[in-house]
């Protein structure tokens, strides 16, 4: 029997073995972390780590393109969408660890064990003729060229049908989420018109007075003509009558300015 292990050992070189042991264990740690962590976002991170390590394993075995696509598509797009949903929905509170179905954990553990045994039993009995991508690559002059020739040549129809399937799914999702607009969308122009038509002050209110000697929300700002800008103080303070008058807050110069006294125009204020 040419077992998998013997074939592997004969083909794999040292560098690949080192990569396998590092990336393999990291992928396993990621998988365990994904199952064991309480927060949904942490789980997503662990599985991203597993995916990246799987990509490294693909690359170590000569499937460079597959490894890159694994990272771009699965880590970069699919997991990122998962993260988006988790963050927007806000499933970050720790989930309850109480078993909802009785004996669920035991059953799941047994099923997992049985599956692992089955996998080990099957894989250890596999007989392999040609291991690795070297043989396949040599036919077309490279890994990328081989993939291109097969996808756009021999398997063109299957490839196109798969992409049609995916596009159908995407369009279906868009139709399901689509909502007919019953009135035209308000553009920036309409919103601005609306704001002015309401008759209220269209911009932000003037900030409170900031003077060299005093700076607080209860001090009103001065308008260019020296009068007080009433709405520069919060409405609640105004209602309570807790507005600091300018003469209490400021020195003579500003008071004179506030009173509209022209005597200070000149070098002092420049």
């Amino acid at each position: 029997m040419t077992g998998l292990a013997t074939v592997m050992l004969s083909v794999i070189d040292t560098g690949e073995q080192i990569t396998f042991w590092i990336c393999g264990s990291l992928a396993l740690i990621g998988a365990l972390g994904m199952v064991l962590s309480r927060k949904a976002v942490h789980s997503a991170l662990w599985i991203a780590m597993t995916m990246i390590n799987l990509a490294c394993l693909y690359m170590a075995q000569g499937a460079l393109f597959l490894g890159m696509v694994q990272i771009i598509v699965y880590t970069g797009a699919v997991m990122m969408l998962f993260l988006f949903v988790l963050m927007l929905v806000g499933v970050d509170s720790s989930d309850s660890v109480v078993e909802t179905i009785r004996g669920q954990r035991l059953a799941a553990g047994l099923a997992g064990l049985a599956f692992a045994l089955m996998l080990i039993a099957v894989i250890s009995r596999v007989t392999l003729g040609d291991v690795g991508t070297q043989g396949a690559d040599a036919v077309y002059g490279g890994n990328l060229q081989g993939l291109a020739a097969l996808i756009f040549g021999k398997y063109l129809l299957a490839f196109e049908v798969t992409s049609a399937l995916l596009i159908t799914a995407a369009i279906g999702a868009m139709i399901l989420a689509h909502r007919e607009r019953i009135e035209p969308k308000k553009e920036q122009k309409d919103l601005s018109k609306e704001r002015f038509l309401s008759g209220e002050h269209p911009g932000s209110l003037p900030p409170p007075g900031v003077y060299a000697r005093h700076n607080a929300v209860d001090t009103p700002a001065l308008l260019p003509d020296g009068t007080l800008a009433e709405n520069s103080v919060p409405a609640s303070l105004r209602a309570r009558g807790a507005i600091r008058t300018v003469d209490r807050a400021l020195g003579d110069e500003v008071q004179q300015l506030a009173a509209g006294d022209g005597s200070l125009e000149g070098e002092d204020l420049r």
Binding site: A55, M68, I72, T75, M80
Partner: peptide, 14 residues
Amino acid sequence: FPVSVLYIVAIASI
């Protein structure tokens, strides 16, 4: 390597 531009895209997505 033969897919190094894709490598840059992959790295950017990480």
